[in-house]
Design a binder for these strands. Structure first.
Lengths: 365, 365
DNA sequence: TGCCGTTACTAAACCGGTTCACTAAACCGG
DNA sequence: CCGGTTTAGTGAACCGGTTTAGTAACGGCA
């Protein structure tokens, strides 16, 4: 009744287990008749070589892991992830490698990594000072870091975060926005955003520069320009919560910049529900340029990043690192971003009236 | 230089390998001092128990596979999938089980399944007469089928496809639509849709009934009602292609029904680009009710299905099947669907003028 | 002192395959 | 008919852990 093993087949076919192994893996080593007999026995007994045992000798799992910093439920609320996986899949499908999602187990990324059945890992959204990062590196598995700072001996595929966010900030500044909410990424809702590390910190620096502010300042010396720095979850709901927070604050900013399109879409949806017109009463800028960014009305102004390409590059580097081991030379690759101006940004309302009544959106796409 | 093995640690710490194993798995079997010494040796040598070897004795991989009928690239173009995975993740994260994406390898699902490193499989989008299905079942791994017909000895989580699609059809019929395009799912672009099996066939049957047509008919006897049955890819691009196909056909239908929201969104985007107003000139109905269905303007009328719940149920049944083996009793569960009427459907234009000029949409969130 | 139950640890078997080193028989050219 | 090569197949070692069964040392108790 138990799963038949290779010895069972060998006995049934009257051969050694080596021959059974050959029948499946190196048929040319066997006489055609013998091979058929073995395969027939295997079929009759319902035998299939154990994938695990096979992996033990090959010492490869033919799997790579995508390490994400949050639960599967939360992380897949962001359409960025599927888009990234599409890129990873382009490489992995080709190579016969399966992709495993590796969320933290019991809150610990290191523990998840230690028990993960993979030949290599793509690390997503980990800040450089993450306490478990060094442990993960010591695990010995090949790593590719996405959106992390340069990292000794590890491949890194990242963006020029400050630049992309800075361009968006300049765009808003040029339109006349002086009171802008900036929504950073709340990774763990309870822990505050690190001002010195991570994606949010780098982008915030670019944004301040784009608005002509001093490095740590949220207001200009003359008080005319003001940044409201908030944090929100990366999901539609997170964006809706941000809008509610802003609406409850009394005065609304004239624009909102988010670190992800899905958050921006949430802000937009909540604004629309509340009868706030976009972009006249509120301009919204996203980040990523996921497909859904052009499904909204108005379409979302956002910082484009080549998500699928990023996934492909990460997978390619990882496959190379796995294949060539010590000979592999890690790469740090900064991918280009660009601001895509669509309909969700325009001059703030008080200036609209004096320039062009009616729709103040900037046409695009 | 090679990865240290358990024997290396044992030698270094001056104990047997059993003790090293204990240090990691059953610390209570060891004197505290010994345990610390072993762990120190392990750290010094950079030792970590091989996840594969571990799995060989435990005979569990602690992974489940999500078998998809297309490439990772194509399948993740549909936001349905991430939503499903969120549900699966709710269960798997809890149970310490990782989720693997299992696309066909070299076109063969059976081959992918045979080499998959999993304790069980969730099968997505496979028709009951799929040639490899029986092979997959014989692999002996626990299975849960999503959206398949009842299947001997296998858990099935599905929808009442005919009912949900039928309600949408009735809705369009009641609005006055008589010339409607129905976009079925093109699984393999080259192979025609099976009229008798699979999701598309079941839904089409419901649609015909909803329009008052005979079982195999695409026109009513009096010729007033007409269904144009097409197939398209499940992606925004697929939807855009469908619109192009319709636009090239000379006369446009007054409504389009699709089998997925993402296709509907593609149709809507292409229509908007072409200056076709929705729903006045073209009504659009989707299927699934993914989050993005309410990000469009107008919001998408669609058949809601409980996607995340479906994922959770599938994962729960699978975990149960894995845990209880022969004692597990397979279940067939039909989840409810409901039509959600939003803004993308309205009376066809020629009737709009006589009823209510201007926006003809049916309001809804 | 002798018996028993813990505690701490170990040798050997086992998980289910693949690979290495080797042999017996068949074949082949000179 | 002989030495050398090919074909077909085998037993044993190995992949890297866990588990089983057992032993030695020690303390407690009658």
């Amino acid at each position: 009744m138990a799963r038949p093993r290779i010895d069972d087949v060998a006995r049934h076919a009257g051969v050694s287990k080596t021959s059974v192994s050959f029948a499946f893996n190196q048929p040319d080593n066997l006489n055609a008749a013998t091979r058929e007999r073995i395969l027939a026995s295997a079929t009759e007994l319902g035998y299939r070589p154990s994938p695990i045992a096979r992996r033990l000798t090959s010492r490869r799992t033919d799997q790579i892991g995508l390490v994400v910093p949050q639960s599967t439920h939360d992380i897949f609320a962001n359409p960025f992830l599927p888009e990234l996986i599409r890129g990873i899949g382009d490489v992995c499908d080709q190579e016969g490698i399966a992709v495993v999602i590796v969320p933290p187990v019991g809150g610990s990324i290191a523990r998840a990594v230690d028990s993960a059945l993979v030949d290599g890992l793509i690390l997503l959204g980990l800040v450089a000072n993450h306490p478990e990062l060094e442990k993960v590196r010591r695990s010995g598995t090949p790593l590719v870091g996405l959106d992390v700072e340069e990292w000794e001996g590890v491949d890194v595929i990242a963006l020029d975060d400050a630049l992309g966010a800075g361009q968006a900030a300049e765009h808003l500044h040029a339109l006349g926005h002086r009171d802008v909410a900036v929504v950073l990424i709340a990774q763990h809702p309870d822990s505050p955003v690190d001002e010195h590390h991570g994606i949010s910190a780098r982008r915030l620096a670019g944004i301040r520069k784009g608005f002509g502010l001093a490095p740590q300042a949220d207001r200009s010396p003359d008080g005319t320009t003001r940044l409201r720095v908030l944090t929100g979850g990366v999901s539609e709901e997170g964006g809706r919560a941000i809008f509610a927070e802003l609406a409850a604050a009394g005065t609304m900013p004239t624009a909102v910049m988010t670190m992800s399109d899905v958050t921006a879409i949430g802000v937009m949806a909540a604004a629309t529900d509340a009868g706030v017109s976009i972009p006249d009463e509120l301009s919204i800028v996203g980040y990523d340029d996921i497909p859904a960014a052009s499904w909204t009305t108005p379409r979302l102004t956002t910082v484009h990043q080549p998500i699928r390409h990023k996934g492909r590059r990460a997978a390619l580097q990882l496959v190379h690192a796995i294949r060539f081991g010590a000979e592999h030379v890690p790469v740090v690759e900064i991918l280009p971003t660009r601001l895509v101006v669509r309909g969700s940004t325009g001059p703030p309302r008080d200036r609209v009236a004096s320039i062009r009544p009616g729709e103040g959106g900037v046409a695009a796409r």
